[in-house]
Design a protein around this nucleic acid. Structure first.
Lengths: 176, 176
DNA sequence: ACAACCATGTAAGTAGTTACATGATTTA
DNA sequence: TAAATCATGTAACTACTTACATGGTTGT
């Protein structure tokens, strides 16, 4: 439900085209709000209809690019939204459902699936640590960078948590 | 997308009515797959149509209860599903979007919202620790209880992670 | 010429949310 | 007798996913 505000935030940081945004959502931005390019294009259209952002068609490179930028009303909307009450995202983790079913139904060859997930989270962790080293090497900068670093730390902690959880599960179910 | 399998797992553990399941999903089960009663009733209907579960209408207490139980085909379907490839749930955390916007737009009275979220996660953590103390006091039981404990530990770690993250954010933005 | 990529979309389907409806039974 | 709780649903809506469409440009 906060896709529009995620996009406004991204555009506030830097103007860009739909594809630019899709790429940012695939990388760093997508850690806290993932979205596909279809969602992004549709939502950019809505935000422009509402007068919160503005596009400029640029006949650059290949095809035609539409560079979006934040307008003052979009700025205001974002400021209004930020301090609103916030509910935790409903938790839905299919891997934990699988583990619970495995607990109830006995050995079911779940180990390969767990190992694949483990590999994914190890790679995520490595990527986040790389970003931390590259972008936040120098300790405490501004309030802004401190907050950005905190968000990254949150992601690092999350990935580390998954790794511990999955290693623990593999230790219990063994190699089936 | 795994609501049907979450329900099959819950019914595999113990038969029950729609309301029973809704209550279980509000408590322990909901930690790894949350669902509202509307979703649950609809999905139970579908699962019965597919012949995976069976209901027996019991004229008990108030109203009429429909007790569902897992049928052999439901059992088989669950066994088939457990070891399938599993993708991480797309990450969507509006509070992190708010923090990122706060980083970009300067002080915006976000502290009260952060404190409310912090309180939620402290209560969740306390509840999980209570369950751990109550249900998993004795160390290593069966494989089954070891897995259930692991899932709980995963939840404890997640809540502890949020608490650290939110305390860190409050330390940076102060009391606005 | 053809593959790979840039760039923006449409269409159809599934999953989840929000609001409301219904009726019975216990408790105050 | 009114409120709270048990118990099961329907209807309408929004968000997200999956598959496909289109057309231009660069590199081989």
């Amino acid at each position: 439900m906060s896709l529009p505000h995620a996009l406004l935030t991204a555009l506030c940081e830097k103007a860009g085209s739909g594809l630019d945004l899709a790429r940012r959502f695939d990388k760093s931005f997508g850690f806290f709000w993932s979205a596909t390019h279809q969602q992004i294009y549709r939502e950019l259209g809505r935000l422009e209809d509402q007068g919160l952002i503005q596009s400029e068609t640029v006949p650059s490179a290949r095809g035609q690019k539409k560079i979006y930028q934040l307008l003052p009303p979009g700025y205001d909307e974002l400021k209004r939204w930020v301090p609103l009450e916030d509910e935790p995202t409903p938790y839905r983790e299919s891997i934990l459902v699988r583990l619970r079913a495995e607990a109830a139904l006995g050995p079911l060859e779940l180990a390969p699936t767990l190992r694949r997930r483990l590999e994914v989270h190890r790679q995520n962790l490595a990527a986040y640590l790389e970003i931390e080293k590259r972008d936040f090497a120098t300790s405490n900068g501004t309030r802004r960078t401190a907050l950005q670093k905190l968000i990254l730390t949150c992601g690092i902690r999350s990935e580390a948590g998954w790794i511990e959880c999955l290693e623990g599960a593999l230790a219990i179910i063994g190699d089936d």
